[in-house]
Design a protein around this nucleic acid. Sequence first.
DNA 1: GTTAGGATTGAGACCGGTCTCAGCGGGTCT
DNA 2: AGACCCGCTGAGACCGGTCTCAATCCTAAC
Lengths: 355, 355
Amino acid sequence: MGKASTVRREVTVGDVAREANVSKATAARALGDYGAVSDDMRERVHSAAERLGYRPNELARTMSTGRSHTIGMIVGDIQNPFFAQATRGAADVINAAGFDLILSNSDETAHSERKAISVQLAKQVDGLLVAPASSLDASSLAAVTEAGRPLVLFDRTVADLAVDAVIASNRTGAFELTRLLTSAGHRRIAFLSTLQHDGDYRPGEVLLSSSVADRVAGFEKAIALAGAEGTAIIRLGAPRDDVERVAAELLTGSEPATAIVASDSLIALSVYRVAQSLGLQIPRDLSLVTFDDADWTALAGPGITVIAQPIHAIGAEAARILLRRIAGDGSEPVLRVLDQTLIERGSVAPPRSST
Amino acid sequence: MGKASTVRREVTVGDVAREANVSKATAARALGDYGAVSDDMRERVHSAAERLGYRPNELARTMSTGRSHTIGMIVGDIQNPFFAQATRGAADVINAAGFDLILSNSDETAHSERKAISVQLAKQVDGLLVAPASSLDASSLAAVTEAGRPLVLFDRTVADLAVDAVIASNRTGAFELTRLLTSAGHRRIAFLSTLQHDGDYRPGEVLLSSSVADRVAGFEKAIALAGAEGTAIIRLGAPRDDVERVAAELLTGSEPATAIVASDSLIALSVYRVAQSLGLQIPRDLSLVTFDDADWTALAGPGITVIAQPIHAIGAEAARILLRRIAGDGSEPVLRVLDQTLIERGSVAPPRSST
DNA sequence: GTTAGGATTGAGACCGGTCTCAGCGGGTCT
DNA sequence: AGACCCGCTGAGACCGGTCTCAATCCTAAC
């Protein structure tokens, strides 16, 4: 009472049929644009629908067809510009295909990811786009394939999981970036990442994120080539909200790093801030390179040298593959590796001590 | 054929009921945790569900209950950090309440917005969160209220539409920001926005976006207080991808602006870049202030003075209000205005000529 | 003049849940 | 002992679409 008054009964196919004096089946055919309907029937139904203000109920349609025209997408954190761009890329192709996007943040935890997947499956998404929180543990993702729904990973792959994935050429990118540093004469080079990790990194160790693992591999290769294994530092597990502290440690010890490879632009920003507050000038006192061509990198002092990932394209391509799978493509899973491009600006110079 | 083999029949309540040797109704009650069920019945049903790998179908539930536990959100562009943050704010409270988020980008066009709203309504969202593309034309939004679903606006309001809205104190913010400039002695101050607009701005004109309108109002008030009406410039309609050109015009004429109020951080970044390429030093040659405490503003040279909006809170509060409406709160629509906070850094100095 | 066949239309089952209502056994009140 | 209430269970309708199948009508072919 009082509550019921606000509940507007929706206009249904049945209502339209009655109004147009045709059967429900015919009305549905005319409205849904399927099957065979004569022109005047179609006309009659449509004008009746117009008169009543009919709005189709997608969910009811999904119930009988089994297709929800909805894609689930799970990112680490939509506030991270990387994910925002990838999401936009995916949204663009998905919308163009008449699908919609349900978005969840995993905060890079297996628990949230598992929960998000479960909810999205329950919502009958036609497929999922996931940046997996863990490249090692495929258990939460398994639910997707078990449910028979296509899954496409982006940004990182997962071992032992035969699904499509779209990633960037992180290994090569990290190699190029690091090479710039070693060529300039740097030896005390640090690789800095926020990837969740306990204690020190041990060479050869398997990492939680394949993209970081690839970057580390590229980094290590360049380091090895320069014979700088002894002085290079790989620092993982920096807390997202306290990267600054870790960066400061790297830059202040008795043997401070003279160059840093930041694993993403958010980290690079923190390093930049710390360098500033420490009175270190880039590139004179510190060389800094990073992944992702964030908007500020061109603006900072001399400009930061970066390796740019085709982020929008990663999201778009992942979505395209997913749509193809949904359409029934049953071919072997593919691994798409998109090229990164080096953008040299002015943040690399020879180390001071070596000059 | 061949296609059919991949279609896994879902396990339904009926299947579980059969397995547990109970009626469908009882199984549903045990699984859905409603109604009265004895302990051993519940146990029997749950173990049967476990055995079969039962997964509830949210859509079917929505069909009969009418609640989808899904919220639609329409933003201008998820790549814009403002919207990314607001989305995260909304997602956090929405997920905490057991709801999900469907996201669409409107690209600030009425057409895309209308389409997105229509699709989301068809998907039976329980309510909508919208940053309206137009503060003047309520027609696309009307569909939402007509459908009887609650709607909460954020970032901007819409005239003649009695719905909740959560915005920031843009007028006051712009006033404070501009005041800083006039107090420093500036008179040739430009307000720069990308808000879609044809030709020159005429004082008193009604603008497409209430938030920009409020900012302009605050700007004008401060300008009037300083008696600088004759030399102040309000420049709207700068194309998003060509703000730089417009900024350059502002800074290079015979009477270049000595200070700029950027309507958002993306614009400020462009201005900053142009200033750099023009060899203008901030704040010596140009004072620059902006809305939004973007990550790079603290880093740029002396640091940009900004007025920070509580963006995450705007999204979160809008979501909270929406959930309350969905829960049945029928009180009068509210307009929540969240305070902005001034963060003074070093981008304001007296104009050169006046020194 | 039939008849096969294509085009339309209507009736009703179905998708997978929820929910109302009736039925049943047992305890309590009088 | 009879009325009544309560807890629990089962049967079946319902949400709003789609889709199968049979019935009907019409036209072209034999």
